[in-house]
């Protein structure tokens, strides 16, 4: 289980080889790689800068990953999130989860991405021809994350 927050780019192939190396209990790996798009809300983006809160980022990502490990039988997992200035086509984020079977790998990968979008303290500043603008959070991301919340049996309806 590993979490990395870095300015540098990453090589998905090398990361996956390292993640699964020598562990023959792994039957499947699910991977999500997020890229910078050149369009947002109709404006063209020349670049974006990702700001983050380093101390909290590492703590949150480690907590999120620990929860995934508790909920699914994972053999290995990796989260890499970049910060700093990125251009369209650049890789921003990578989440990989490895398990004996595909269902746990697929579900936990999606879980990690949904939580990352709504909990990890990163903020995007987009550079457009109308100037730089902070990206607004999307309600659809909250909805996506909410479906993973476990029902609390003690909660009053």
């Amino acid at each position: 289980m590993a979490v990395r927050v870095q300015a540098e780019d990453f090589d998905v192939g090398k990361e996956l080889a390292q993640l699964t190396n020598g562990n023959h209990a792994i039957g499947g790996v699910a991977v999500f790689v997020g890229l910078v798009r050149d369009l947002a809300g109709g404006s063209e983006i020349s670049a974006m800068t990702l700001e983050h809160y380093p101390a909290m980022t590492e703590k949150m990502l480690a907590e999120i990953e620990a929860e995934a490990t508790e909920r699914w039988p994972l053999e290995a997992s990796l989260i890499i999130h970049r910060f700093g200035r990125l251009e369209p086509g650049d890789q921003i984020v990578m989440v990989a989860t490895a398990s004996a079977h595909r269902q746990a790998a697929f579900e936990s990968c999606e879980f990690l991405m949904d939580w990352l979008k709504t909990k990890a303290p990163f903020w995007k500043l987009e550079e457009t021809d109308q100037g730089a603008q902070w990206v607004d959070a999307r309600d659809s991301d909250d909805t996506a994350a909410a479906r993973w919340v476990k029902k609390d049996p003690d909660a009053a309806e």
Binding site: L50, M56, M113, K117, A120, A137
Partner: peptide, 25 residues
Amino acid sequence: QSYAKPGDPVGPNDEVALFPPVTGG
């Protein structure tokens, strides 16, 4: 470094961060 609600306590030795909803990923 942990999310807090309006009723949660704060003290002189705490590190408190204020920010908009996150937009990473």
